[in-house]
């Protein structure tokens, strides 16, 4: 069973986001990690491979630094990887990303596509759905348990106090939610073996794709406003109570 796992490199969850002078997100000195939800997808793919054989291929879009995340997936036990690295993809939106990924997948043989249900940086959950649409594949989202059967997967989705069980014919796109498994840390042996595994870097030209215009463009970023200091109402109780009521009604408008 051949599985493709789509991963994205993101900021560390603990990274403090800062903007540069020209209003872009400052990535200087920020620790980068594999999107944690993609880690569940990588782990699940490796477990399926260990149980049923086949090959796990990592596919990612990103700059030179994204290689680290890809290498981590290889060190965990994936077999090979493709990294689409092209300066023309700077500013690509989900539409473009899905089209590029679909093109990469076009030339590959796979039974299952796994990825995280959301990336922790933009949190938009757009790419898996769009990709499934472009490829014309069924999709199961936010999955916490996955069973592979003959020609299909059984996916468990947790709802509010309930579990939804879906049967999806293969090939399909399945997105991983926390709880699906506990991802492993690469062993030292895994890290060293990862060096020798194939990591193919391709440009848009290699894929035969023109640089496509994004449909959505980022106009600017703003940091949330810093928290203001609270107000302390001082004085005699009778006075302060009426002042407080005035604050609550007129300024905070909560009552």
């Amino acid at each position: 069973m051949n599985i493709v796992v789509l991963i994205k490199q993101t900021f560390d969850t603990e990274a403090k986001i800062q903007l540069t002078g020209d209003g872009k997100v400052n990535d200087q000195g920020v620790n980068l990690i594999m999107n944690p939800y993609d880690e569940f997808a990588v782990e699940e793919a490796i477990r399926i491979k260990e149980a049923k054989g086949g090959e796990v291929t990592i596919v990612s879009l990103g700059g030179d630094k994204a290689q680290e995340a890809v290498r981590q997936a290889l060190a965990m036990g994936a077999d090979k990887a493709v990294l689409v690295n092209d300066p023309a993809l700077e500013g690509a939106d989900h539409y473009v990303v899905a089209k590029v990924l679909a093109k990469v997948l076009e030339g590959m043989e796979y039974d299952l596509i796994l990825t995280g249900w959301v990336a922790i940086d933009d949190q938009s959950s757009q790419v898996p759905g769009r990709l499934a649409e472009v490829l014309g594949l069924p999709q199961a989202n936010v999955v916490t348990k996955l069973e592979v059967e003959d020609g299909k997967v059984v996916c468990h989705r947790e709802g509010d106090g309930s579990v939804e069980v879906l049967e999806v014919p293969l090939p399909a796109v399945v997105t991983a939610q926390k709880g699906l498994n506990e991802p492993r840390y690469p062993s030292l042996k895994g890290i060293m073996q990862a060096k020798k595994k194939e990591l193919k870097k391709v440009s848009l030209g290699d894929l035969g794709l023109p640089a496509e215009e994004a449909k959505a463009k980022v106009v600017g970023y703003q940091l949330p406003e810093a928290r203001q200091a609270g107000k302390v109402v001082e004085g005699e109780p009778a006075e302060t109570v009426s002042q407080l009521i005035e604050f609550l009604t007129k300024e905070a408008k909560v009552i």
Binding site: E68, R71, Q72, A75, Y185, P186, L188, I191, M192, K195
Partner: peptide
């Protein structure tokens, strides 16, 4: 035949993760 300078960061980062988490 086993290690090169480029491997240092990956090994150290993973080792720290393992020590922190495990």
């Amino acid at each position: 035949d086993y290690y090169s300078k480029e491997d240092v960061d990956g090994i150290l980062d993973q080792a720290l993760t393992v020590c922190r988490e495990m």
